[in-house]
Design a binder for these strands. Sequence first.
RNA 1: GCCCGGAUGGUGAAAUUGGUAGACACAAGGGACUUAAAAUCCCUCAGCAGUAAUGCUAUGCGAGUUCGAGUCUCGCUCCGGGCACCA
Length: 1079
Amino acid sequence: MEKGEKEERIDLNAVAKKWQKEWEKNKVFHVKKDSKKKKYYVLEMFPYPSASFLHMGHVRNYTIGDVFARHKRMQGFNVLYPMGYDSFGLPAENAAKKEGIHPRKYANDSIKKIIEYQKALGNSYDWRRVISTCEPEYYKWNQFFFTKMMEKGLVYRKKAPVNWCPNCESVLANEEAEGGKCWRCGTEVVKKDLEQWFMKITAYSDELLEGLKNLDWPDKIKAMQENWIGKSYGVEINFSIDSEDWAVFTTRIDTIFGVTFMVISAQHPKLLSLCSKEQRKEVEAFAKKCSRVASAEEENLLEKEGVFTGKYAVNPLTKEKVPVYAGNFVVADYGCGMVMAVPAHDQRDYDFAKKYKLEIREVIKGGNIKERAYVDEGVLVNSGEFSGMNSKEAIEKISDYIEKKKLGKRTVNYKIRDWLISRQRYWGTPIPVIYCERCAKKKQKVLIIHGFEGKSNSNWFPWLKKELEKQGFEVLVPDMPNAAHPRLEEWMAALEKIANDFDGNDIIIGHSLGGNAALHLAERKKISSLYLIAPAPPVQYPKSRWDWFRKEWPNSDIDALKKFHDAEVNFAKVEDNSERRVLILSDNDPYIPLEAQKLFDDKRWEKIVLHERGHILEPEFKELFNELMKDKKNLGIVPVPEKDLPVLLPENVDFKARENPLLSNKKFLEVKCPRCNSPARRETDTMGGFVDSSWYFLRYCSPDEKDKPFDKNDVKYWMPVDQYIGGAEHAVMHLIYARFFTRVLRDLGYVNFSEPFTKLFNQGIVYKDGHKMSKSFGNVVFQTDISEKYGIDTARLFLMFVASPDKQMEWSDEGVEGSYRIIMRMAALAGKIKEKSTARDESRINITIKKVTEEVESFQYPKAVIAIIEALDYYARGIPKKHYEELLKMFSIFCPHIAEELWHQIGNSSFISAERWPKYDYSKIEPALEELSKRMEILKDDIRRIIHIAKQKDEKSEATGAKLIVSPSWKYKAVFLAKKQMENTRNTGDIIKALLKDNEISSHAKDVPNLVGKLMKNSQLIIQAELSQEGELSFLKDEKEFLEDELSLKIALERAEDSAEGKKEQALPGKPAIVIKMK
RNA sequence: GCCCGGAUGGUGAAAUUGGUAGACACAAGGGACUUAAAAUCCCUCAGCAGUAAUGCUAUGCGAGUUCGAGUCUCGCUCCGGGCACCA
């Protein structure tokens, strides 16, 4: 058997190995930046290399991406498709503990194995770009970004109640404590009060929320992020307790007349200062009891409880006094940590009120408050002047009233908390910080330089000095020499002396001409922040302006001022020396025009324009004070200077200890303070793995960069990721962190976009025996199990074909056979190449290209494969070479190895993987031919059925021939017209009338009602495309031979008009009448 | 409790704007080829009744809108995912 021989010759495994080698040798998938080509960045979430094998779940994930990448590459895009490893993290460390293997060895061995398996998948990665996050070349930049963020105040250390996983012996981020359990090991999480490092993701809450709107992401993920950010609009309103204002936040200000008590969180920091002497003991005991509640689970099961604080609060609208309770169900760090309780309209308050027998007062109509709280909106009652309004209106009106009376203000609150990044583990990026006790005692210095003819005790200087000293700063406000006849050298000499011991933590403020002096000082000194308040810009003024100054100040030494002022400033140097630069101007300053700000680079200077503050000479200057508070630092926390990065993770540590292994390495621990050189201690916390994965997609753009995290131009070309592919489990972790990190890098000037991932695709999970395929459940089917038997192409095809990539799928071993058959059919087709192509062939290939292209583009892979299978069916009798090549190209994205093999087998020497994706020609698609092709199946069925019936009458008889009588010409017209009519009406009479208007049809008037009746009853008979008798006849002529062959029957064709058979009346367009000859 | 998805043959699943429900496969059964097996090819395959043509019933349940509903509306049931005392 010819076919059989050929099939046996194809060893899919050998084919796969052969082409993987060839691709590598010929660098088929290497990409580089090419500004002439349009880029496309396809990325799969990089794996955590803990498992040293791949199962079908993995294979599916990677194949989904590879199919897409191959498609885009063949479409002519310059495709970046990289792979890397998220190699820091606990499993490696745990393996070290259990098996005594060093985490580095464990990680690297795993990576090696995974790469081997991944390469066997035949994915089109550019393998030169592999990154691994546990390498110093990578994590150095985590540390670098960390210190940059510290400078910006985006990283901070704080003592807070945090989630602690006793099994991992480390803290977890909020996002990682899933349902009160550790996301990695499932252990019940415990609350602990610890000093930890946070990244200020809350500074971007609103932007992260707004950004979602423009993302082409699954709605589900967007909704999850939205919920996680949890923005709610409401009112913050002050209740007076002992004539002190206590704010509460509410989204239901319309229920304020129903407040019957207040509840303050048992964890509220000011709880004890609130409660009365008599109740203090009880409250204290209650707070203690609440803090003992360790696990999240317990907390959820807990009943609402509270104790009276002994105090009463005054409702600002009703002036009514209500009792204040301490409660266990109020979250301390959301809103104000205290709530106004409206038991009638909030279920939690209701439960509490029932338990402590507090009043439940209905203020919204519509519910039955005897049974339960009515939480929906409705019409207000018992609400003074607001009674009768509906909730929406009342919320607006009451809010207006409150703001007008200054009782509170509209506010927005978020659920999202800052991102806890520190972990008390070894295997992560060391946090580049050193604790110095000596530096901790030092004070941060602030130097204030007054202006022309100024004095140290004028303006806001004394006020600011006092305020800053309260905050622990050391403030210097010198009187400058000869302030009325300033000479730059003289001022600078004095200032240099004063600022002699300034370092990178100190702050310089210059007002007016003092701003110029501040600039000159900042040219020479490294400082933290530089403030210029209404400064004279160092620019050459025209003579007229100086003349004006002379006129304005007839008794002043304008010449000295001019000389001082005109001295040139090296801005680059200033900007280099300072971490932060702030310019504050007033929009009606008589001396300093607003245009002055144009001199300062927008990106490098923060600019604040005040309204009508003149030359800013007032005695108090709150805006400046507030800005300065952002610069407040704990000087005992010393960031490792850039030149000392990376802080290398020491190899030699003791993994046996229960605490962080890093504590066991004294050399790592004991260091000199980089600032004062005295003995200091190194931070032993490391960064959680999500820091690594927050920017890895940028590193792929220039993976070998030594002196920077990445090359800006490379990133500009490749980013953002056009198509990101990964599991939905990272919806509120990785995906939100990466979006945050990208924004931070944008604000630090490293990238010029905000969203890292334009499109996101979530693949479904692979199940087997009703469970997610996983090692722990023991239901894994390994990549090798399938590839050894059928070759990897078969596994790929099956995974892409059997279920939509976004849906979960059930693995079935049997199903694989079917995919293998498809590959074999594609291979067999290579032996059926014919010379000429017919119109029908053309129509078929074009419709196939159209379908496959569209379906692949929208990740409807099964439908794309089906289109290919349909083409295989169609071309079973022979395929023109060009069509075979095009079909093979489309097939190649699913089964690249065998496609490559067949491509060469039919005489090509290029790589099909690098070929161009076929384009379809819409004009060659003939709906009539496609319609008739579809109907051929029905025709065959009909013939078989009629023979079957005939045999029933006489069992010994045999069918010898069939006559197909093609429908009379007029019926084609009639059916088509009827179809058009039916789009508008379903009234049989109207359709018949419309048809009879046609001359040709009306000459068969008596047959028309019957025909229309048939069509109405059986819509299968309606032809979608416009057919003609000639068309159908010639189609059947083409088909005749095959039909005869298939049915073992002689076939004759005739027109109804020429036929003598009575059956001819049954013929319809696309459905010839059938007459069978029996013997 | 709240927010998202789902529910279609023995199985995985398809069904543009409402217009032939079950495409394409898997499994099962029958047949051809073969000494035999494998492979391949062909046929049958939602259910019920019937030799058949055909008829009736069918897209979780119950209503509704429509000439026409898997698709739209309302009310339920069950399953999956997420959040969880966020005022």
